[in-house]
Amino acid sequence: MTEDGKKGLGEGTTTIFVCRDSLEGILCGVYDAWMSRLGHANVALELENQGNIRMFSQYRQVEETSEKTEKVISAICRKAGQEAYEMVFRVSLSREEEKADRIYRFLVYALNCKMSAKDMLQIPAVYEVFRIDRSVGNEAHLLKEFARFSKTREGIYVCTVKPKNDVIILMAPHFADRLRGENWVIFDQGRNKAIVHRADQGWIVVYTDTDRWKERLVESGDQKEFEQLWKVFHERVAIKERTNYVCQRGHLPLRFRPYMTEFGYRLGHD
């Protein structure tokens, strides 16, 4: 039975729960789909604005409440463990359109599984989430390595990135620990979103637009000098007799380079 009292349109009709592209949105979608009692095979989760309307499907907008979100989180942590929850969190940051439904399928398995569900990679529902998690995790990891900060006139360290997945939130704790005494910003150019950290105080996520942002990005006096020094070092440390650009590209994909000092990036000139 559906909530509005009508019998479903028979076998083969899917009810699609449409959720916002965010952790909360997806978890509330999981809640609504699960609690609808339509049967896991008859429901699906989709993100908003996906465009491709499916025939013979009913669409329902997911309503977000913090209560639902918390209930789902606590169920995951209790039944599948903290690590499974962290996985779901990272998968929710992916750019893959099917991620909401993948999370749902994973939870259907994980919340009923007696074993550590996340290790059962032979199960397709687990493998898909593992795969997405790995690619989000890899990108976040590489950005911790390849992110470059430039110092502005106001003494703020600014880093611009354009990640495929929404990973700046995964970078934040790392830099908040090592650069704790600095004011810094990590700006996601594709999403107009930034992590802003204040010295010795912590960080927040802010939404902003590129133009307003750019006005403030004026280099500090010594920025150019250190950029130049870094380029000199980067060039000199290579052994000529072992030159190997293919190997270099394998480790450091070209897509990261537009934002890296040693490959020509300059603050405010992109």
Binding site: E145, R178, D200, A238, Q248
Partner: peptide, 27 residues
């Protein structure tokens, strides 16, 4: 090693590679 108040930096046991030189070696 975790960061400390009043200090710059921490250390990550697996190590991080910040760049790769023209010979393909990690920097």
């Amino acid at each position: 090693r975790k960061g400390k108040k009043g200090m710059l930096g921490n250390a990550v046991s697996a190590g991080l590679c910040h760049s790769f030189a023209a010979d393909g070696r990690c920097i």
